[in-house]
Design a protein around this nucleic acid. Sequence first.
DNA 1: AAAACTGACCTGATTACCTCA
DNA 2: ACTGAGGTAATCAGGTCAGTT
Length: 287
Amino acid sequence: MMVEREDLGLSLSLSFSDSSRPSQLGASPFGFNLYKPSHRDCETFASLDRISEADARPSLRGIDVNRPPPSAADCEEQEEAGVSSPNSTISSVSGKRGEREMVSGGEDNEAERDCSRGGSDEEDGENSRKKLRLSKDQSAVLEESFREHNTLNPKQKLALAKQLGLRPRQVEVWFQNRRARTKLKQTEIDCEFLKRCCENLTEENRRLQKEVQELRALKLSPQFYMHMPPPTTLTVCPNCERVGAAAPPLPSAGGGGRPAHHREPVPMIPWAARPGPVSHGALRPRT
DNA sequence: AAAACTGACCTGATTACCTCA
DNA sequence: ACTGAGGTAATCAGGTCAGTT
């Protein structure tokens, strides 16, 4: 069974078989990579938008996030200042706090503190969490970006934020939500898949039980021996030298036309498939 | 009115870096 | 100079809230 990507409704870019992208979410058993990047992986050069939530709140009360925030441009400028710092090692250095601070130092942080949090619930009743609605264009750009990388490094975040006229924090939140919801959808799909596997196996089991019963009945009848294959059709397995009748391959079973005793169990679920064929030498003693 | 969607937020975990004894 | 402990900051996943469609 293969689930169409379009089925997800989120127009996800689930890479079922594409393992070529390193920056996917971490590995899902179904091939959807759910990659959690370590800080070492990403370019953390000026993560200006991470601030104490508590600190951020008070200064933001009264800001309507649905309005293109005056802060957005301001933030970008401030962050750009960080980005364009001659001392920064923006694109090549990974997550060294020294560098982060170099570009995001004191005042910028304060500024970001003011502009990165849309927050402001409680207390101020009239400004309880207004919701921004992203435009189609904004969503499209974000989707496109998500398809390419489902995590953002700070540089990409800033660039996107600037391009879309959003705060970096908004871009960050969008990506976080997107990852979470993508994963949720994938889980639902996986669940559905497992359900169908279970049904198929139950059916197969029923069928095999029936077959066993029939064979037992046949064996008890004297005519059974009349149907025995002549000895010449018995084959010797070249690997283990066991004697077995050449069985026709079962369409649904793994192992194709191999002798029955060499057939691998059918993997119930895709990720259960072994990386390679199990051979007699698979359990070689360590040297 | 109810349900689905979605932007925003909170919390806890993880990791890297810094400071200091 | 080296080292381990504790602190700080950034980022993430998972869960939730609440406004919008």
